[in-house]
């Protein structure tokens, strides 16, 4: 089987933020790619740079932020050096994004049906007269009951879960080839989260979309992606197929994150905590491995520039002293 061409490939992306207390080296040499029809998850604590990666790729970084190196290739176009007019063309049509807080991302004074229709008219050349009916169809597709009535509703009249569905409908209205979902279910109930994630996965599969799913929840990422990219303090520390990564984490940070997931332990005492906290990214004396100061497996070699260790064809970890591959099979429930 030949691997499909990457829908998006980010290569050596570095981003800095200028603040009054110094330069924050938010991203350093971040590389990963996502193939057509594939869902990858960017996982990390807050401050790890996962959202900055998405914003930089979309060209919607805060003005204080600056891309200092790298490329983000979407088809033949480098999003990072593209002209604003080219970017505007690509955003919405080729790449769509859904955000953490759907209510603030929606226009509060426009009925949701109209907001969907706007996108259809702008990006899909749908005739103005036909747009409202198609918008209602989109609402039906994202599982909103009584879509004709809901199309006339304003965002404040809808629950958080419902607003997120509308956001998804808007994002997918233009049938993009890449969807970036930035913590789309944070702040929603677990039941709503499950429904929203089902919806995103189903639609992504049906439309053959590449999806980048940003989350801090490793368990959720494990359930919803085929590949996980673990980020720590602006570095990609591990990148592997989901099952492989969860069963055989090689980077010590990934291993600690897995051990800290509530689901992983039978009781609170058995739950491991991640030692230390993120280093201050304004520091000028950051070690090459930004995890080394909190790492339980630190060795002398860690002072050298980061290795780009490809452990096997499909599993990379940026570590001088990775965990050995455990031969023990993780306590996976056999698929019944």
């Amino acid at each position: 089987m030949t691997a499909a061409a990457p829908a998006l490939s980010v290569e050596g992306l570095s981003v800095e933020f200028r603040t009054r207390s110094g330069i924050v080296r938010a991203l350093d040499n971040v590389s990963f790619s996502v193939r057509k029809g594939e869902t990858i998850a960017l996982v990390g604590e807050s401050g790890s740079g996962k959202s900055v990666t998405a914003y930089a790729t979309m060209g919607i970084l805060d003005p204080a932020g600056k891309v200092t190196a790298g490329r983000a290739m979407l088809g033949g176009l480098d999003l990072l050096s593209a002209k604003p007019s080219q970017l505007a063309e690509v955003r919405g049509r080729e790449i769509a994004m859904i955000f953490q807080n759907p209510r603030t991302a929606l226009n509060p004074i426009r009925p949701v049906g109209r907001q969907i229709a706007d996108v259809l008219i702008r990006h899909r050349n749908v005739p103005r007269a036909a747009a409202p009916a198609q918008a209602i169809e989109m609402l039906r597709a994202v599982g909103i009951t009584d879509p004709a009535r809901r199309a006339r509703a304003y965002p404040f009249e809808m629950s958080g879960g419902m607003c997120q569905r509308v956001m998804i409908a808007i994002a997918l209205a233009a049938k993009p080839s890449l969807l970036i979902a930035d913590e789309p279910t944070t702040g929603l109930d677990v039941t709503t989260q499950a429904v929203i994630m089902d919806l995103v996965s189903d639609l992504a599969r049906d439309m053959g979309m590449a999806t980048i799913f940003i989350t801090h929840d490793l368990a959720l990422a494990g359930q919803r992606s085929s590949r996980i990219v673990v980020m720590h303090a602006g570095h990609v520390v591990e990148n592997a197929a989901t099952k492989d990564l969860l069963a055989h984490p090689r980077h010590p940070y990934t291993a600690e994150l897995i051990a800290a997931t509530p689901d992983a332990a039978a009781s609170l005492d058995k739950l491991a905590s991640v030692s230390g906290s993120l280093p201050d990214l304004r520091r000028t004396d950051l070690p090459p491995c930004r995890y080394s100061e909190r790492c339980p497996r630190k060795i002398a070699a860690c002072a050298q520039p980061l290795p780009h260790t490809t452990l096997d064809a499909d599993h990379a970890a940026a570590c001088w002293h990775p965990l050995p591959i455990r031969r023990v099979v993780a306590p996976t429930e056999s698929a019944a």
Binding site: Q193, V195, G222, Q223, R224
Partner: peptide
């Protein structure tokens, strides 16, 4: 049951779950 099923688990894929419908 739906609530328990909706909790993401590390070593279990989300495909076969009880799905809640409606509002």
């Amino acid at each position: 049951q739906a609530l328990v099923a909706a909790v993401p688990r590390l070593h279990q894929s989300g495909a076969e779950r009880l799905r809640l419908i409606g509002e």
